[in-house]
Amino acid sequence: MKITSILSFGGTGAGERPSRRRRLAGMSVGLVYLCFPVLDIVTGEVTGAAAFWGALGLAAYIASFLTTALTPRDYGELTPLTWCFMGATTILAVVLPFFFGGGWLTLPIYTTVVYSMALRPLPAMLGMLAMGAVVVLIGLLEEHDPASTVVLLFQVATLGVLFMSVRNTRMLVVQLRQAQEEVARLAAGEERLRIARDLHDLLGHSLSLIVLKSELAGRLAENGSARAVAEIHDIESVARQALVEVRDAVSGYRQRGLAGELDGARAALEAAGTQVTVRIAGTPLPEALDGLLGWAVREGATNVIRHARATRCVIDVTHDGEATTLEIVDDGRGASPYGPGSGLNGLTERVAAAGGTVSAGPRESGFALRIAVPAAGGPGA
């Protein structure tokens, strides 16, 4: 993963144009210490051709320094153009103090800042040592006050370390923002999966019931039975309920529990001509398990209606305080009506998240779906 490098003062890399303006403004303030070589020229300490070349060299250094600082690049991966400008900055930071001395020794300090903000830690440290050596060497050659040389050397070291820390901090900020964006992307993907899974569970059950009742209403209408009107009203009611449940699922507020799903499964199976027996044993279920088993009953009943062609279905729920089991057994065709499909996959994911297991397979006569979940289970357990 490439991380955009942030150099100099101001800006966090968000929005390249505003960031560059802020960085340029910050560096313009920071360049105030170049007043010392400027004063050498203005006050006449450097005169004649030396003043001309000094002014030209100083202008070239400032241009090279700013261009190096503002050139877009990836962290630790400078472009050839940036290397050229950094090389020019380095040469000028060595040559100009060598010829003019005095206040021109601020140039190696600025160059150290460039190294610290643009290079990886090891090359930046080597550059800092090189600029420190330049300060010491020129101080000895020009016979500067040892105290002044020590102060300049101290500035090279402290500013180099300081801006390396600033660079590292800003890299961490960029990485944090990228991590936040990745978390948001993953959360959005997970939410899409949740909605898709919930819609499958909801619509599969409701649409199966609507199809069955529509077929029944059609047959009754052909025979002139008055029950056709009642079945049509039931279809309308189921469709309206499905619409409400879809809205709730999309909003994330759907809280229909086991009792409601058992009633719905009984109604749907009986409408399909399947005799239903529901047996519940044990203490009341915890809220998390109540919702989980509600989803399981919905999925199991839907698949019995769709695939089993059963005449009898038994739903057993047992909760003994330590474990909870749900079994849905039918006397249908016996071939697996559950897989491979998104319904069983989604149910398996839900149960696995609660620390439970799902098993499904044919029996001597019919098919059985069994779910076992620890009493402490539940989504997110």
Rank of each mutant, 00 (worst) to 15 (best):
L369G: 02
A354R: 04
R227C: 01
S359G: 09
R306S: 08
T12C: 09
L78D: 04
W83T: 06
L24E: 06
R167Y: 00
T111H: 04
D74N: 13
D145L: 10
V173N: 06
G377H: 04
L105I: 10
R247L: 13
C313H: 03
D316P: 08
V161Q: 11
R312M: 07
E191W: 10
N345S: 15
P97M: 08
A124S: 06
A354Q: 07
E349Y: 09
G204Y: 05
V113Y: 02
A118F: 03
P362Y: 07
V278N: 02
G341D: 09
R266C: 08
G378T: 06
V276I: 07
L159G: 01
E215S: 14
E16M: 12
L119Q: 03
E45N: 11
T158K: 09
R167D: 12
A157E: 03
R309A: 11
M117C: 10
D331M: 06
T82F: 00
V329F: 03
I41K: 00
G26K: 03
P340R: 14
E327S: 13
V317T: 07
A133R: 06
R306Y: 08
V150K: 07
A352T: 13
V113P: 03
T357D: 09
R350F: 01
S365F: 07
S208P: 02
G361Q: 06
A281G: 14
L202N: 02
H307L: 08
E231F: 12
E231C: 14
P146M: 08
R254P: 02
A184W: 07
L105G: 01
I91N: 02
G76K: 05
R350Y: 00
L56P: 00
P108A: 04
V46D: 00
F9V: 15
V166I: 12
S206W: 03
G334D: 08
L137M: 11
L199S: 01
M125K: 11
K2Y: 11
Y338D: 05
P97I: 10
G87M: 09
V329G: 05
R227T: 00
G48R: 08
T325L: 05
E322H: 11
E270V: 09
F98W: 15
V211H: 13
A196M: 08
A249Y: 02
A228F: 10
E142Y: 00
A288V: 11
G57F: 07
M117G: 06
A221P: 00
G189L: 14
D330I: 04
V297Y: 03
P80W: 04
R306C: 06
G257N: 07
A267V: 14
A196T: 08
S5G: 14
T4Y: 09
E231V: 13
L105D: 02
A133I: 11
V373N: 01
Q255W: 09
A69C: 12
D74A: 12
